[in-house]
Amino acid sequence: MYNARTEQRRAWLQASPALIWLGFFFLAPLVLILIYSFQGRADDGTVLWNWSLANYQKLFADGAFWRTLWLSTWIALVVTAITLVVSYPLAFFMATRSPKRRGLLVLAVMIPFWTNFLVRIYAWKVLLGNNGVVNRFLDQFDLGPLQMINNPSAVIMALIYGELPYMILPLYAALERFDWVQLEAARDLGAGRFQTFWHVLLPQTLPGITAGSILVFVPTVGTFAVSDILGGTSVNMVGNTLSLQFGSASNWAYGSAISMIFMLLLLGAILLYFKATREVNDGENPG
């Protein structure tokens, strides 16, 4: 009943809606961007049809872009790391509550995010601004004012805030279906807490960690709103460069070239990361 051919056919059948949808509404549009990236900019800001490699040549010589990419990567790594460290114990906490509580806890994570993201970012500005709530409070005790906004730390903090659910949910999904009996077994067999965590819990929740890290890292690298509103002049990220090129600079061709290279690098990084985590996992559970 479970022979390979029906299995193959079923797999294709299940994959086909996604394949068709993404083929039409993701891949085809993406090919368009690829085509744009070989064109030029007309004086009125439209795409000038003139095939060349000029955009890519410019990009590789563009120090501004590579500085921006470096800063974005660094910020995204910090955000992902902190988010992971904070979320794992939280997901563990959530997954070990009674089923009734679990539902409540998951929703409590989501509720703040059913407001508008701009409104949430601005709420941070109200809190941390030069004349913000915190500084007004400090003022009561003749302390401050503290400069808490318009710097990289403000951006990092607001990004952590915004990305938390994207880490918590996959981790929770992985931990929720973890077979807790195994922990007991490991302990019964004399494993220490750290050993139990490292050899039993971690390998089995690795898919959750991988998924969560990617879901956090990727949007963070490409963000533009948070750095715009809270970053001051010190934080320019790839997203800001892209919105400049697709926005007021009206240079879609150059913007497209940036996007292609950026996506290529990101995809490469993710595949490497997958490979690394898989090797760790295989090392843990041979066979």
Partner: peptide
Amino acid sequence: GQNATAFSDVWSAVKS
């Protein structure tokens, strides 16, 4: 309109 790229290049360089 014209020469817009020159302005956006300077701008990107300053911001980054």
